[in-house]
Simulated scan of single mutants.
Amino acid sequence: MSHSIEEIQQQFRSLRLTETANYLPSLIQQAESEDWTYQVLLKRLCGYELKRRDEKLIEKRLKWAAFPSYKTLDEFHLDEQQSLSKRQVNQLKEFTWLDQLYNLIVLGPPGVGKTHLATGLGIEAIQKGYKVSFVSMGQLIQTLKTEEVTRKSQTRMKRIRSSHLVIIDDLMFMAMDTREANLFFHLINDLYDKASIILTSNKGPNEWGELLGDPGITTAILDRILHRAEVIHFHDDDSYRMKHRSSIFME
Rank of each mutant, 00 (worst) to 15 (best):
V112K: 00
L104W: 03
E147P: 06
G122M: 02
M137V: 08
G120F: 06
Y102D: 15
D99P: 09
W97M: 09
L117N: 00
S136F: 05
L144M: 03
L101S: 13
I105Q: 05
T119W: 02
E124A: 15
E147I: 07
G113R: 01
V135A: 06
A118N: 05
I141F: 03
S133P: 09
T119D: 03
F134D: 04
M137A: 13
W97V: 13
E147N: 09
K128A: 10
M137L: 12
T143P: 03
D99K: 15
V106K: 01
I126R: 02
G129K: 15
Y102G: 13
P110R: 09
E148V: 11
Q139P: 07
G108A: 07
V106N: 03
G111W: 04
Q142P: 08
T119I: 10
W97D: 10
L104G: 02
L117P: 02
Q139D: 12
T119G: 04
W97A: 11
L107I: 09
M137T: 11
N103Q: 07
F95G: 11
E147V: 09
V106Q: 03
I126G: 00
V132T: 10
S133T: 14
G120T: 10
P110T: 13
G122S: 07
A125I: 14
H116C: 05
W97P: 11
I123Q: 02
Q100R: 12
L117T: 05
W97I: 11
E147Q: 14
E124Y: 09
I141S: 00
P109Q: 10
K145P: 03
T146R: 06
K131S: 15
L98W: 04
Q142A: 13
A118E: 05
E147T: 12
T115H: 03
L104Y: 03
G129L: 15
V106S: 01
E147A: 12
I123Y: 05
G129N: 11
V135M: 07
L98D: 06
Q100T: 14
I126Y: 03
K114N: 06
L140Q: 00
T115F: 01
D99I: 12
M137I: 08
Q139H: 09
S136D: 07
I123W: 04
F134R: 06
T146P: 05
S133V: 12
I105V: 14
A118M: 07
W97L: 09
S133L: 10
H116A: 04
K145T: 08
V112W: 02
G120Y: 06
V135W: 01
N103E: 06
V132D: 07
I126W: 00
A118F: 04
V112Q: 02
I141L: 11
L121S: 03
